[in-house]
């Protein structure tokens, strides 16, 4: 179960791929929605660790446009509920994530991302 909270923490780690390697882009994904326990304290505590733009962008790729472009100053319940849903209830079960820099493909199968394939890649030549 790759949720968007986890996607927000994953960067491409192919050897030599060190810039523009985040966020990974979704491709051909199948999504399942599953309810999760709402915990506003957890969400408030986690917001500082998020790359907000990457989260909004990832949600939009999956057709969810409920989040504002910037996190609001007032973290009211209505906003936290939306954030809760996007971060914790959207599960990517199948598909792939692709590095925007080196195009390495990280497949997702049965909700488990294969991040290990990066170790077998030849060293990437960064072209700027």
């Amino acid at each position: 179960m790759v949720r968007l909270i986890t996607h927000n923490l994953l960067a491409c780690h192919v050897k030599g791929c060190t810039s523009n390697n985040f966020p990974l882009q979704f491709k051909d994904v199948q999504v399942e929605l599953r309810e999760a326990e709402f915990n506003p304290d957890f969400l408030r505590g986690f917001i500082p660790r998020l790359e907000w733009g990457a989260l909004v962008d990832a949600a939009r790729q999956l057709g969810d446009t409920s989040l504002p472009a910037e996190p609001p100053e007032m973290l009211d319940d209505d906003f936290l509920q939306k954030l809760h849903h996007v971060l914790l209830e959207v599960h990517i079960e199948e598909g792939a994530m692709i590095c925007p820099n080196c195009n390495h493909v990280y497949p997702i199968s049965n909700g488990i991302p294969n991040m290990a394939s990066a170790y077998h890649q030849p060293i990437h030549n960064v072209v700027n």
């Binding site: 179960m1 790759v2 949720r3 909270i5 986890t6 927000n8 923490l9 994953l10 960067a11 491409c12 780690h13 390697n21 985040f22 999760a36 790359e51 914790l88 488990i112 991302p113 294969n114 991040m115 290990a116 990066a118 170790y119």
Partner: peptide, 18 residues
């Protein structure tokens, strides 16, 4: 417990963001 498994060596895909 909702655990997010990642098929990876050590913390490699997370080092940059965590």
């Amino acid at each position: 417990t909702p655990i997010e498994p990642l098929n990876a060596s050590l913390a490699t895909p997370l080092m940059q963001r965590l």
